[in-house]
Simulated scan of single mutants.
Amino acid sequence: MSASPSPSAPSLLPFPAVVARLRTAGCVFAEDEARLILAAARTPAGLRAMVDRRVAGLPLEHVLGWAEFCGLRIAVDPGVFVPRRRTEFLVRQAASLAPARAGAVVVDLCCGSGALGAALGAALERVELHAADIDPAAVRCARRNVGAAGGRVYEGDLYEPLPAALRGRVDVLLANVPYVPTEQVELLPPEARVHEARVALDGGADGLDVLRRVTAAAGAWLAPGGCLLFETSERQSASAVEIVARGGLMPRVAEGEELEATVVIGTRPSAESPAVRAFGD
């Protein structure tokens, strides 16, 4: 997040006092966070409440009500998954693969706040944007972000709520699937483990359960030459590639060293190739 340059206001708590409270609570970037909170607060009572929530461990983005993502201010409500900066690499990959024509069809599955779809919609010219999530709180939040980009958001499990007319037409399918193995969820930082919906974190026994379900049906929704993109860990990438290939898509891995991001891309062949059929047998 970029810091606002207004560190104090006469009627509010002084900047040093806010910094001190945040630092005592373990906030590594206390000065930057203090500037953002002070810029957002409208009253002394509101400021104290925001600082109290942050000190209690609420993610800064939930305290502010927004997260910076791909240069956009994305609304993020309490309990909703906070978009990670590393996921900007996924959006950049998707933008580079999207059709050059206007009106490309983009779907953001497991959309959370809708940050990925909104960011890709902002990067492309006149997209047809759709998003879906199973979490009602996430859907309410995504409707503000995706709606501002001219898109529509649906509530339901993966592809189930999407309009049937999208089948075979999707040019870019973003799926920010949860990929943390169940037994490792409890090892996550409290900001995620306590304050974000478990459905947005828990990927099943090996972290790849939701991915399997996404890839199993992706080919039916993608247009010929369309791409599925999702983030995973470096450790899981080999298994993820195999899953994508068995789903009939041509897989490859993109690595973003600066953001420590691993993205797997699966492309629906324009015509099914013998190599893809053999992998799926």
Rank of each mutant, 00 (worst) to 15 (best):
P5D: 14
P7S: 12
A9K: 15
L12R: 09
L13A: 14
P14C: 08
P14W: 02
P14L: 09
P16Q: 13
V18F: 02
R23V: 00
C27V: 15
E31W: 02
R35L: 13
R35T: 00
L36Q: 12
A40Y: 05
A41V: 04
R42V: 07
R48M: 05
M50E: 13
M50V: 01
M50Q: 13
D52W: 00
G57I: 10
P59N: 07
L64A: 09
G65N: 09
W66G: 01
E68W: 02
I74P: 01
V76H: 11
F81H: 09
V82F: 04
F89R: 03
L90C: 10
R92S: 12
A94Y: 08
A95L: 04
L97K: 03
P99C: 06
A100E: 15
A100S: 12
R101E: 15
A102E: 15
V106C: 06
V107K: 11
V107W: 11
D108F: 03
L109F: 10
G112W: 12
G114W: 09
G117S: 06
G121Y: 03
G121M: 11
A123I: 03
L124S: 01
V127S: 12
L129G: 03
A137T: 03
A138I: 07
A142E: 14
R144T: 07
G147H: 04
G150K: 10
Y154F: 15
Y159I: 04
A165K: 09
D171Q: 03
D171P: 00
A175G: 01
V177P: 00
Y179H: 07
V180N: 10
V180F: 04
P181K: 09
V185H: 05
L188V: 08
L188C: 05
L188E: 13
P190W: 09
R193K: 14
G203H: 08
A205G: 01
G207C: 12
L211N: 01
L211T: 12
R212K: 11
V214K: 07
A216R: 15
A217H: 07
W221N: 03
W221H: 11
A223R: 14
A223K: 12
C227Q: 14
S233G: 14
E234Y: 01
Q236A: 09
S237Y: 02
S239Q: 14
V241Y: 03
V241K: 11
R246A: 10
G248T: 06
L249A: 10
R252Q: 13
V253G: 00
A254E: 15
A254M: 06
G256T: 10
E257L: 09
E258N: 00
T262C: 15
V263T: 11
V263N: 11
V264L: 13
I265H: 02
T267G: 00
E272G: 00
A275H: 08
A275W: 14
A275F: 12
A278W: 12
A278H: 02
F279N: 01
G280E: 15
G280V: 01
